[in-house]
Each structure stands twice: as structure tokens, then as C-alpha cells.
């Protein structure tokens, strides 16, 4: 019984620490990457994995009582809504006139968009 408890504690703590390290790396990417679109890559993917890891750590510690169910709900909600928020932000950035950084090699969305404007 104590072995089982200890294994569960170690597993939940490692999920917890891993989630926080991934979240920190994502925020570091927010600082280092060159333009809005690349920063969205960092915050969306890594931030969501970090938050979900922390919530899984909570579930592993307390089991499926009311606290665990709420934690898994928060994680699922973040995982469902983050891609939509990222899509809205990147589309608004492109239409608002935020250009891509100078390392970029291709922009097929901008080409189609300007073609539409010329037709009108």
C-alpha cells in the first residue's frame, strides 16, 4: 500500500515539474522568437502541454474525486479553445497589416489576399 502511494506521488510530482518546465520554455519562446506568428507557435503548443501536464499531476495525486474531475475539465477546455484563439489572433494580425519577419521565405496567404483586393 505504501509502495503504491509512493509511486503515485512520484508520478504526479514528475508530471507537475515537467509541465512547469515546458510552460517556462514556452514563455522563453515568447521573449526570443522574432514575430507574432512564431510567438504564437511557442505559447499555444508548449503552454497548453504545460498546463495539461500540471492538471494531469493533480489528477494523479487526488484520483477521480470532484477535484480531479474539475482539473481535467480545465485542461480539456484550454486544449479546445487555445487553437481557436491562436487562429483568431493570427488572422487579425495578417489583416491588420503586421508583416512576417525578414527571415520568412514564402507568404501565399498575402498573395491570395492582395489578388482579391485588386479584383475589387
Amino acid at each position: 500500500m505504501t509502495d503504491y502511494e509512493m509511486i503515485r506521488n512520484i508520478l504526479s510530482f514528475s508530471f507537475f515539474a515537467g509541465g512547469m518546465i515546458f510552460l517556462f520554455l514556452g514563455m522563453l519562446g515568447l521573449l526570443r522568437l522574432p514575430d507574432v506568428y512564431n510567438r504564437l507557435h511557442a505559447t499555444t503548443k508548449i503552454g497548453i502541454l504545460g498546463a495539461f501536464g500540471v492538471m494531469l499531476g493533480i489528477v494523479m495525486k487526488v484520483g477521480f474525486n470532484s477535484m480531479g474531475i474539475k482539473a481535467i475539465t480545465v485542461g480539456m477546455f484550454l486544449m479546445l479553445t487555445a487553437p481557436m484563439a491562436a487562429h483568431m489572433m493570427s488572422r487579425a494580425a495578417h489583416r491588420h497589416g503586421v508583416g512576417l519577419c525578414k527571415e520568412s521565405i514564402v507568404d501565399e496567404y498575402g498573395q491570395s489576399y492582395y489578388k482579391d483586393q485588386e479584383k475589387e
Binding site: G26, G29, L33, Y37, H41, I46, L100, E103, D107, Y109
Partner: peptide, 26 residues
């Protein structure tokens, strides 16, 4: 795929110099 994605982006972030070729494709 989510696990692979996070590790790939984290590798890019912890490089000393960021060396990427971004772009939008259809």
C-alpha cells in the same frame, strides 16, 4: 503529435542562435 510538437518547438527555442525559415503555405 502534441508531445512531438512541443519537443520540436522547445528544441528551436533553446538553441543559442535562432535559425528558422518561417512562412505561410497553402
Amino acid at each position: 503529435e502534441i508531445l512531438k510538437a512541443s519537443i520540436a518547438v522547445a528544441k528551436i527555442i533553446i538553441q543559442p542562435t535562432i535559425n528558422i525559415k518561417p512562412g505561410i503555405i497553402s
